[in-house]
Design a protein around this nucleic acid. Structure first.
Lengths: 154, 154
DNA sequence: TGACTTGGTCTGAAAACAAGACCCACAGTG
DNA sequence: CACTGTGGGTCTTGTTTTCAGACCAAGTCA
């Protein structure tokens, strides 16, 4: 299967990955959540080829995850900001970071802590059910085809 | 920056992506969560090159996300199962799927629904704080360097 | 005038990928 | 015994991507 065909699959995971499944895209989004907004800052922070960065940013803008807007005239300079669609990726990004905090960090612990300003604690992300509010475990979930929508996985 | 160098970065996101940031890996894991376990079944389901699949599975085994175990002798046949480390990726996988359900699904709705057996409802995943149990929004979170661990983002 | 900054493009070499042929061990069938 | 089928891969070849680094253009600064 070709990568471009993923977006057409009747599978939400495939559609998501057609947008953010690229090797660098989630790193770019991590930076975006850390308030990086400019081309050069992304480039310095990530150290990826400028051409690749420019392609990725353009794709994310096209997909509506980032928004390109001028922050000054003469000369025009642009910044990339997360849209609401982009902000909705926060749970994904954070749970991935917390996964690596748990499983890939050395004895010195994770490099960054996340502080919940509302309650004043450093926290980990927890997956909960939108209906009952309880913590969800993989075994408690059953994936079912949506009869209203056509065919296939996930 | 080279892709292989990611794993050495003092950034959990980079470390996570060194394991699952590959184009196909999250699709493989999605299948694994849907109880696909055999080489040929992955291959048929995803349609990727067998060589690439074999490399990815080997990497996931090496990283401890999947476990390769014989399910019969004479002839020996293997299956790939999620380890606890692999199961811990469920929140990430599910939140990505739910993101695409919300933002990429057509008018017919998402192709697959997730049913929480404990409460009996179809649900969406919600990011909550491990400390106070409340829903977390991006703006309520502050990322702070962990003094105990060395340098940089995450 | 020249140097610097931002936000990119362009190029050639190196790596990853797709498709499909091929391989091996074993099982079952006749 | 030969013949076919299955599971779990490997190999080859040609096409895409990616990388590193050079280059470029508009505008500002000194």
């Amino acid at each position: 299967m070709r990568w471009e065909d993923l977006a057409d699959q009747p599978c939400s995971m495939a559609r998501a990955l057609a947008v953010v499944g690229d090797r660098w895209t989630l790193m770019i989004l991590r930076d975006a959540f850390l308030k990086v907004r400019r081309f050069d800052d992304f480039q310095k922070s990530l150290g990826l080829a400028r051409r690749v960065l420019s392609e990725r940013l353009a794709l994310l803008v096209e997909e509506g995850v980032l928004e390109k807007r001028p922050y000054q005239e003469r000369p025009v300079r642009y910044e990339y900001r997360l849209t609401d669609k982009g902000l909705d990726l926060y749970p994904t990004v954070l749970s991935l970071i917390h996964w690596a905090d748990k499983h890939c960090a050395g004895p010195e612990g994770p490099p960054v802590l996340h502080h919940h300003k509302t309650c004043g604690c450093d926290f980990r992300s927890v997956l909960t059910c939108s209906e009952c509010g309880k913590k969800v475990k993989p075994r408690q979930v059953e994936a079912r085809a949506n009869i209203a929508a056509p065919r296939q996985p996930a």
